[in-house]
Protein backbone atom coordinates (compact mmCIF):
# COMPACT_ATOMS: atom_id res chain seq x y z
CA UNK A 1 0.00 0.00 0.00
CA UNK A 2 2.76 2.43 0.95
CA UNK A 3 4.82 1.66 -2.11
CA UNK A 4 1.76 2.41 -4.23
CA UNK A 5 1.18 5.74 -2.51
CA UNK A 6 4.85 6.61 -3.00
CA UNK A 7 4.58 5.97 -6.72
CA UNK A 8 1.40 8.01 -6.99
CA UNK A 9 3.04 10.89 -5.14
CA UNK A 10 5.74 11.07 -7.77
CA UNK A 11 3.33 10.91 -10.67
CA UNK A 12 0.84 13.39 -9.25
CA UNK A 13 2.29 15.20 -6.27
CA UNK A 14 0.04 16.98 -3.83
CA UNK A 15 -3.03 14.84 -4.37
CA UNK A 16 -4.55 12.78 -1.58
CA UNK A 17 -5.49 9.57 -3.31
CA UNK A 18 -6.88 7.85 -0.23
CA UNK A 19 -9.91 10.10 -0.25
CA UNK A 20 -11.07 9.50 -3.81
CA UNK A 21 -13.17 6.65 -5.17
CA UNK A 22 -13.36 7.94 -8.74
CA UNK A 23 -9.75 8.73 -9.57
CA UNK A 24 -10.08 8.00 -13.29
CA UNK A 25 -13.65 9.19 -13.78
CA UNK A 26 -12.83 12.55 -12.20
CA UNK A 27 -9.77 12.89 -14.41
CA UNK A 28 -7.31 13.05 -11.50
CA UNK A 29 -5.17 10.60 -13.41
CA UNK A 30 -5.27 10.73 -17.19
CA UNK A 31 -4.08 8.03 -19.56
CA UNK A 32 -0.50 9.22 -19.52
CA UNK A 33 -0.47 9.11 -15.74
CA UNK A 34 -1.96 5.61 -15.87
CA UNK A 35 0.79 4.56 -18.27
CA UNK A 36 3.46 5.81 -15.93
CA UNK A 37 1.72 4.19 -13.00
CA UNK A 38 1.45 0.89 -14.80
CA UNK A 39 5.16 0.95 -15.66
CA UNK A 40 6.06 1.55 -12.04
CA UNK A 41 3.62 -1.04 -10.65
CA UNK A 42 4.93 -3.60 -13.11
CA UNK A 43 8.43 -3.05 -11.82
CA UNK A 44 7.76 -2.67 -8.11
CA UNK A 45 5.35 -5.56 -7.71
CA UNK A 46 6.69 -7.73 -10.54
CA UNK A 47 3.29 -8.28 -12.15
CA UNK A 48 2.18 -8.21 -15.75
CA UNK A 49 -0.65 -5.80 -16.38
CA UNK A 50 -2.72 -6.55 -19.44
CA UNK A 51 -4.51 -3.99 -21.58
CA UNK A 52 -7.77 -5.55 -20.50
CA UNK A 53 -6.89 -4.54 -16.96
CA UNK A 54 -6.76 -0.91 -18.01
CA UNK A 55 -10.36 -0.15 -17.15
CA UNK A 56 -11.56 2.63 -14.86
CA UNK A 57 -12.90 0.15 -12.27
CA UNK A 58 -9.38 -1.06 -11.54
CA UNK A 59 -7.97 2.39 -11.00
CA UNK A 60 -10.71 4.42 -9.45
CA UNK A 61 -9.50 4.02 -5.90
CA UNK A 62 -6.41 2.91 -3.97
CA UNK A 63 -8.26 -0.22 -2.88
CA UNK A 64 -9.18 -1.07 -6.44
CA UNK A 65 -5.57 -0.74 -7.59
CA UNK A 66 -4.32 -2.89 -4.70
CA UNK A 67 -6.94 -5.52 -5.45
CA UNK A 68 -5.84 -5.66 -9.07
CA UNK A 69 -2.19 -5.99 -8.07
CA UNK A 70 -2.99 -8.77 -5.62
CA UNK A 71 -5.06 -10.60 -8.24
CA UNK A 72 -2.24 -10.40 -10.77
CA UNK A 73 0.28 -11.61 -8.20
CA UNK A 74 -1.89 -14.67 -7.54
CA UNK A 75 -2.49 -15.47 -11.18
CA UNK A 76 1.15 -16.00 -11.94
Amino acid sequence: MEKLLEILAIIKPGVDFTKSSSIVDDGILDSMDIARLVGEIGDEFDVEIEVTDLVPENFNSIDAIMKMIERLEDED
Binding site: S31, A35, V38, G39, G42, D43, E48, I49, E50, V51, L54
Partner: peptide, 18 residues
Protein backbone atom coordinates in the same frame (compact mmCIF):
# COMPACT_ATOMS: atom_id res chain seq x y z
CA UNK B 1 -4.90 5.09 -26.86
CA UNK B 2 -6.30 1.57 -26.96
CA UNK B 3 -4.35 0.15 -29.87
CA UNK B 4 -1.09 2.08 -29.93
CA UNK B 5 -0.47 3.70 -26.57
CA UNK B 6 -1.48 0.89 -24.23
CA UNK B 7 0.12 -1.96 -26.21
CA UNK B 8 3.40 -0.06 -26.42
CA UNK B 9 3.29 0.90 -22.76
CA UNK B 10 2.63 -2.66 -21.68
CA UNK B 11 5.07 -4.30 -24.06
CA UNK B 12 8.27 -6.03 -23.08
CA UNK B 13 10.23 -3.65 -25.23
CA UNK B 14 8.84 -0.73 -23.29
CA UNK B 15 9.83 -2.37 -20.01
CA UNK B 16 13.39 -2.42 -21.22
CA UNK B 17 13.21 1.28 -22.03
CA UNK B 18 11.79 1.88 -18.59
Amino acid sequence: KEYVFYPITLSGHFKKVN
